[in-house]
Amino acid sequence: MTLTDTPSSLSRFGRLMVDRPLLPLIGLLVLLIAVLAILNPGVLSMFWAGNTLKIAIPLAMLAACQTLTMLTGGIDLSVGTVATISAYLTATLAPLIGVPPAIAIALASAVVIGLVNGFGIAVCRVHPLIMTLGTALIATGFLLVYQRYVIATGVQIPDFLLWLGTGRSFGLPNSLALFIPFAVLIIWAQRRSGFGRLLYAIGANEAAARLSGVRVWQVHLTLYTLSGVIAGVTGLLYLGQIKTASLSLALPLDLPSVAAAVIGGTSIFGGRGGYGGTIVGALILTVLTTMLTLMQIPEGGRRILFGLIILSVTALFIRLTERN
């Protein structure tokens, strides 16, 4: 309660974790890379670094959706589906109607899904988890119908998406050209825009935000629409990276995107965290996945590990914040 608390070393560490999650996170990342280097000497190279970045970027972008929604105490489990739909629409519509209209339709459908999520969460007050799962289910149905009824004359992946997804310049992946401005914008907006601040305010204390005159539904509606747009754009990038249009393209990223944000120090209860930590979290997960693959841990083991990470980090977070 007072300023003159004499914290134990444990609670001091806890405070550091809560206040500056970036430092210990980067430490963890370096540690993981070191372990990887010991497990498999010679794996570290400029090429490996570039590749890791390339794989981490779509994950980090979807994790932006989780970070922003989690700041308000929400979550968006439809991002994988939205990204998949956006990619599939672009790839199959481009040969029919040209690249720009195809992308426009792809992003428009991402907006629609986001709006539906926003409506259910903001106006009907459905729990974000249930709502986004539901829209994902419906949207997948639409995708399947689309796939059956629209005779695709073939798949065309726009050149600039290929350049963005797979190209390299100076040894670094071109996707950084999209990601760096994106990350800068998000990190700027979370602290220096009114909208970003309100996300923290709602997550920290929705009743207090309301008493301060914030109409919470407006923020939720905007937020989930924005989340849809980010997921849609990520789908385009992922299409350029994977180079095929599949009906389950980005679905495997759903769970890791939540895990990346949680590991990055964003509280699933809202009000704490930020995108900086999430980026490091996405890198940690990517390196961890490489490691698990090297150790031949199957997919099932990976899911268990991710689930346990989410649970234990959240439980730890509750302990740390209650102590203070």
Partner: peptide
């Protein structure tokens, strides 16, 4: 886990959703 960790049910069971999924995949791929 819900009672002991005091983490809300929706978060615990979301995490356990992934854990049980993983267990199922480990048993049968």
């Amino acid at each position: 886990l819900i009672v002991v960790s005091r983490v809300p049910d929706i978060v615990v069971t979301l995490a356990m959703l992934f854990v049980w999924q993983g267990v199922a995949l480990l048993i049968l791929n």
